[in-house]
């Protein structure tokens, strides 16, 4: 029986956790679907997740005297992380943008899926509120409008391999950690507050950056399909950020007020991981820091 985390660190540990999480989504060709619930693998997964959660919580300081429902959007606006969208808007070259699309694909090709784990774990008002948002993410019943399908269509138009998990070999550690965190928050019912806090911060930092992305992609003459993905997020996420805070988080806290701290933890973690990812990508491209 395993009682300590495997000794792999950094990239290897993050990749191992990502592979274990993928067994719960789409799995891998040639890998037995039954391994999803294989006890030894679940144990390894648990040890790697405990290490990840400990590191994430170690970076977080709870804000004092703020109400999530009233203050989260303004608090999120005030956290000025490094902005990749600003770089793409004005300065990025085509290779950098294609690199960004490849590494973002790890999440965008399963966009919103980790959040769907939460649905059965919520009370009636929070569940209905979350589904109001998720329905839009999944195209309102029209598969052509489903967001991760829009991204795949955009990738193919840009000449990139759009198949699920095709680019895992080129992603930096920070991307694996972003994805692992979403899966950790989504798969553990106990972390439902953190998952919905993450959702709020994710949506609240999407609308204006998506506009910059769309403008940057136009500047570089990328195909309309990938521009359309970002254009869709300008308006969709202007709605979703309001829903995430004012209806979903409010309904959650109405039933489970003790989850407020985890809402903040999730929101902070989303922004923190994105800032670390942005710094890594600018470093990889040899570009100096770009203000938010």
């Amino acid at each position: 029986m395993l009682t300590t985390a495997p000794t792999a660190v950094g990239d290897d540990a993050a990749l191992a956790l990502w592979v274990l999480h993928e067994l719960h989504y789409r799995g891998f060709a040639g890998v037995d679907d039954g391994l999803e619930w294989e006890p030894t693998l679940l144990q390894v997964r648990g040890l790697l997740e405990a290490d990840l959660e400990r590191r994430l919580r170690g970076r977080w300081t709870p804000p004092q005297g703020l109400s999530f429902v009233d203050d989260a959007l303004e608090w999120i606006d005030g956290q000025d992380g490094v902005s990749l969208a600003r770089h793409v808007h004005r300065d990025a070259d085509r290779d950098q943008v294609l690199d960004l699309l490849r590494v973002r694909s790890l999440y965008h090709l399963k966009e919103s899926d980790p959040v769907s784990w939460l649905v059965p774990r919520l009370g009636v008002p929070a569940k209905a509120a979350l589904m109001e948002l998720q329905f839009d993410e999944y195209g309102n019943g029209d598969p052509n409008r489903l967001h991760h399908h829009l991204f795949a269509t955009g990738m193919a138009a840009a000449g990139l391999e759009p198949s699920y998990d095709a680019h895992v070999d080129v992603v930096p550690l920070e991307v694996l950690e972003q994805n692992n965190t979403l899966s950790l928050f989504g798969l553990h019912r106990r972390l439902r507050g953190a998952a919905l806090g993450h959702l709020a911060a994710f949506e609240a930092t999407s609308s204006l950056p998506s506009r910059r992305m769309a403008e940057g992609l136009k500047r570089l003459d990328l195909p309309p399909e990938i521009i359309a993905y970002y254009a869709e997020h300008v308006e969709a996420d202007a709605v979703h950020e309001q829903l995430a805070v004012r209806t979903i988080a409010a309904a959650l806290l109405d039933e489970e007020p003790d989850l407020e701290a985890d809402l903040w933890f999730g929101a902070f973690t989303c922004l923190d991981l994105e800032d670390r990812f942005a710094r890594r990508m600018l470093d990889r491209w040899g570009v100096g820091e770009v203000a938010a």
Partner: peptide
């Protein structure tokens, strides 16, 4: 076109009449 739509109230949205988050800046 969505179940919920955000209508701009600051009148500075580039997607007017829909909100694009411009009020935040």
């Amino acid at each position: 076109t969505r179940p919920v739509t955000a209508v701009c109230r600051c009148e500075r949205s580039a997607s007017f009449p829909w909100c694009d988050g411009t009020h935040k800046v």
